Amino acid sequence: MTEVLLGSTLSALATGLGALPILFLQNTITHRWRDILLAFTAGIMMAASMMSLLPEALNQGGFLEVFAGLFLGVLVLTTLEKKIPHIDLEHSKYGIQFDEKAFLIIAAITMHNLPEGLSVGVSYASEQSETGNLIAFAIGLQNAPEGFLVALFLFNQNIGKFKALIIATMTGAVEIITSLLGFYLTSFADNLVPYGLSFAAGAMLFIIYKELIPESHGDGNERNATYSFILGILFMILLIETFG
């Protein structure tokens, strides 16, 4: 219990950590560095899904459990994608602009964080003790640039830097609740673990291919983003081999 609470808290608060540079930022960042960072986190999440979550789900269940859980994860993210206002970044060399109202942006980010927290909680219920830590780390790395983008958006909307930091941090804090929910559900019903792990993998794969990769390839930085994606995969493989 203590481990899942600590892991989910650190993963969730990585959103605020990623937003921290906003306090020292005078202008905005180039899309080149933003794309490199997004692709790196996509690589980390890809390796976590394919080399940690899905193998563990197969080990504790079978193909049918993996199929059902992965399909459900994709379905939930697809539903959120359709029902919740989506954030489309305008591709320009400098700056990031949004058409949506600030409240809708914050609501969208917050809702999209819910299944990520669930992924962390389910991973801690796995028989492999390090799976939860690895997934919490992967989600945390994905949360960091997300928190920065939220804070940057709020900063561009003439909201104070400190207030932007607090709001960005709170959008990630909701993951703690869903993380504990996922952990308790799978702890009380062991047969749910392979479904939960596959659900987490499906949700992460959806985020990778639908969000992170397209966003990192929209400004002419495809080659740099591709290199960064591969480095992200290798980095996560190193962590799995070291701590898995």
Rank of each mutant, 00 (worst) to 15 (best):
65 E>L: 03
134 L>C: 06
14 A>F: 02
124 Y>H: 09
195 Y>V: 11
157 Q>F: 08
36 I>D: 01
40 F>G: 04
90 E>A: 10
170 M>W: 06
214 P>K: 15
102 A>W: 05
240 I>Q: 06
136 A>D: 06
132 G>D: 09
237 I>Y: 13
162 F>G: 08
61 G>C: 02
116 E>G: 05
195 Y>Q: 10
139 I>F: 03
231 L>K: 15
132 G>C: 09
34 R>T: 12
146 E>D: 06
24 F>L: 13
15 T>E: 02
100 E>W: 00
93 K>N: 07
144 A>Q: 00
128 Q>D: 06
3 E>K: 09
219 D>T: 11
6 L>W: 10
242 T>K: 03
45 M>G: 14
174 V>S: 05
170 M>L: 14
197 L>H: 11
186 T>P: 02
229 F>A: 12
114 L>P: 01
220 G>I: 09
183 F>T: 12
9 T>R: 10
219 D>E: 15
83 K>D: 03
137 F>P: 03
112 H>T: 02
69 G>Y: 08
232 G>Q: 09
188 F>K: 04
240 I>W: 03
147 G>C: 01
55 P>Q: 10
221 N>T: 11
51 M>R: 08
137 F>N: 00
232 G>C: 04
216 S>F: 02
100 E>N: 14
72 L>K: 06
130 E>S: 07
146 E>F: 01
161 K>S: 03
153 F>L: 12
43 G>R: 03
56 E>N: 12
163 K>R: 13
104 L>D: 05
206 F>C: 03
198 S>F: 05
144 A>K: 00
228 S>Q: 10
46 M>F: 15
92 S>V: 14
92 S>C: 12
158 N>S: 13
79 T>Y: 07
132 G>R: 10
238 L>R: 06
72 L>S: 15
20 L>E: 08
161 K>N: 13
21 P>D: 13
98 F>I: 14
216 S>L: 03
125 A>V: 04
127 E>A: 10
112 H>N: 12
80 L>P: 01
29 I>F: 11
1 M>N: 14
124 Y>S: 03
242 T>P: 01
192 L>T: 11
58 L>Y: 15
6 L>A: 15
229 F>S: 11
202 G>I: 03
67 F>R: 14
164 A>M: 08
116 E>P: 00
218 G>L: 09
41 T>D: 00
237 I>E: 01
34 R>E: 10
109 I>V: 15
91 H>N: 09
143 N>S: 08
167 I>A: 13
26 Q>W: 14
145 P>F: 06
165 L>N: 07
32 R>S: 07
198 S>R: 00
244 G>S: 05
146 E>R: 04
59 N>G: 05
76 V>Y: 04
